[in-house]
Amino acid sequence: MCVVLIRSLLLYLLVIFAVRLMGKRQLGELQPSELVITILVSNIATLPLEDVDIPIVVGVTPIFALVCYEVIVSWVSLKSQKLRKLMSGSPKIIIKDGKIDPQVMRDLRFSVDDLMMSLRGKDIFDLSEVQYAIVETTGSISVMTNETTNCDPPQVVVSDGKIVVPALKNLGLNEGKIGRVLKKASAKMSEVLIMTADTEGNFYIADKSGAKPIIINNYKF
């Protein structure tokens, strides 16, 4: 009994350390890989608690291994958009300019009931109020209503110094135009942390040094 008590305390401390090692990302909305790790860690942690024949080292090794893999993979994902997309997927636009995309709903296996339930969770009971809705990689839905704006929300066109080609195509932009905007803002592509653009010619540029972001409104090409 005493042995079980001490093992419980040790495992509690070790699991807390492991969860803290994963960091704040784990405490908010969970990405698919984070959800998998959370479920696995909670199941694995019970095994040495229930069975004293399992050494503590053997019990916590998979916990720490999984957590460390997750931290390292998420760090590598910062550098690689392809890996990020592979691990977490990408957000899907389910309602654009007030129009529902049935193909995206089929791809996501999102029924009409699921859509209405998600919108009600955002206090929206009338579909006609919705200008834009995105299903995030966590499964949650982000909504922009007609009250806020009548145009589509800004999209990320440069991420961590690299052009996001699909976003450029959506907005009818190209690398040359982005280059001109950056020149006006006296910024270099390689130094850009994030750059967003919308259909109205509004740009937001934040660089990697953490300086105040540059906002350009109604830019005409």
Partner: peptide, 19 residues
């Protein structure tokens, strides 16, 4: 970055222990 370093160190320890 500190978390990444700690994670790498823990993985190295686990690997050495395993071997």
């Amino acid at each position: 970055m500190t978390r990444v370093k700690i994670s790498t160190a823990i993985l190295a320890v686990l690997l050495v222990s395993g071997i």
